[in-house]
Structures are given as C-alpha cells and as structure tokens.
Amino acid sequence: MVAAVEVRGLHKSFGALTVLQGVDLCIGEKEVVSVIGPSGSGKSTLARCICCLEEIQQGEILLHGERVDGGRLRNKAMAHLVGMIFQQFNLWPHLTTLENVCLAPVRVLGLAPEAAQERGAALLERVGLGNKLGARPAQLSGGQQQRVAIARALAMEPRIMLFDEPTSALDPELVGEVLEVMTDLAASGMTMLIITHEMLFAREVSHRVIFMADGNIVEEGTPEALFLNPRMPRTKSFLHRMSAHFGTALVAEEGGRR
C-alpha cells in the first residue's frame, strides 16, 4: 500500500543554518503520529515542508504517492491532500466563522456558495460551534478559534492533517476542547501528524510517537515504548525535563536517574 506521507532524505536550511538534516519519515493511511522534541529541533519546519510552505534543498516528499515538493502540484490538488493547523489559528479576522470556512471551497474547489455554506455549517456543528456561524474571530475564545481553523481545513476534505502545536497558544482550560475535536478526528480515520507538547494526549491518541532533536528523528516507536522505555539518552532527558515541568509521571520512575 502507498504511504500517506513519505519523506525521504529531507534537507532544509535557512541560509547557513541547517534545520533538517536528512529526515526520513513514513506515515501510513489513517495513522496518527505525534512529533515531540525540544524547541528549535525542526518540528515546525518538517510540517511546513510537508505542506509545501517551505522550499526544500534536498530530498523528496510524497503524499499518497504523489511527489509534492518543488511546487509540483497545483494548489487545488495540494489542498485536497493536506491541511494544516497552526499554533496561532490564523483565522481571517474580517470574515465570519462561516465565511472563513467557506472561502476556499468556493474559490478553490468551485463549490456553489449554498453548497459550501451547507458543508461549512455541518463542519462547524461537528467541532461544536454550530451556534457561532456569524461570529467574527475576535469574538471567540482561543479554543473556539482553533476549532474554527480545524473546520476550515476539513472543508477542503484533505486526506492528511498536520497540526503544529495546536494548543500551545491556548489558556490551559481551553486545551481540552481542541484535543477532544482532534481525538474525534483521529477516531474517524484521518491521517494525522501532530506536533505537540501535550504528552498525555500524544500518548493516548497516537499510534506512533517520534522524538526529534537537532533536525533529525532521534527515536520513534509506539507511545508505550517511547514514553515508558526510551532507548536514547536524549529522549530520556527530554522526557524527564517535560515531566518535571508538567508534574506528570510520563516516564517510568527509574527512567532517567542513571
């Protein structure tokens, strides 16, 4: 079977700064993969390369067997393959939530406005915002805005969804509602790549967890294997710093004390 995401030997640099140094990654259809790692390790850059927001210097990126890097694919085909959720939501503030969701389906897919609105309303209903169709982003909480962003991405019916720290900009009490929507999405069979610092969520929702550091994938495995039994010293020390910070016992007790 063709993988949903296949990244081969990906090198990415900004000027003299090399950010990704030969990343290989394969994500199967309907697989949910979380990416964790310290700040600056290249997690966002990896996601941005996959959805072609960044040009790459070397390597190949294939989505459902189609080579997408280097602007090979047309806008519409690309949007059908992959959707992206940003830390800062990036809703368009001058449009209502429904308009945010409907714009691309009308302009890019050529849907009739009525059909797009029907689709948009259903999606907003699905993320629990059926009563906020006419609201503007500024009138919504961060959690609500991020859920609108998810509905907006889903309106293009992408086959893969990328999430770049979707809850990092949220007040703690609003994190849950977004994670809930993402859990539902995972359960519906969406292929997902999730960059997150929410370790418990990553552990619960993912089929596989990837630890990145210094522009490389250092270690990957099932959530149990990676969180409870990390092999690499870097993974261990990262997980211990995280659990110290969040006060959660992510890692088996004896894990890092050696």
Binding site: M84, R152, A153
Partner: peptide, 27 residues
C-alpha cells in the same frame, strides 16, 4: 497583515491573487 494569514490561505489552495483580493487587501 500577519504572515500566517498568507500561509493559511496558501495551504487551503488559494492563489496569490485570490489571497490578495479576499484576505489581505480587505484587512
């Protein structure tokens, strides 16, 4: 206009001109 508004539009498949007209210029 924040760069993120361009990026969101781009990933959703909007062309440069569409993004400019529908999203950037109104703001």
């Amino acid at each position: 206009v924040p760069k993120g508004h361009w990026e969101a539009a781009r990933v959703l498949g909007l062309s440069y001109g569409q993004t400019m007209r529908c999203i950037i210029l109104p703001q």
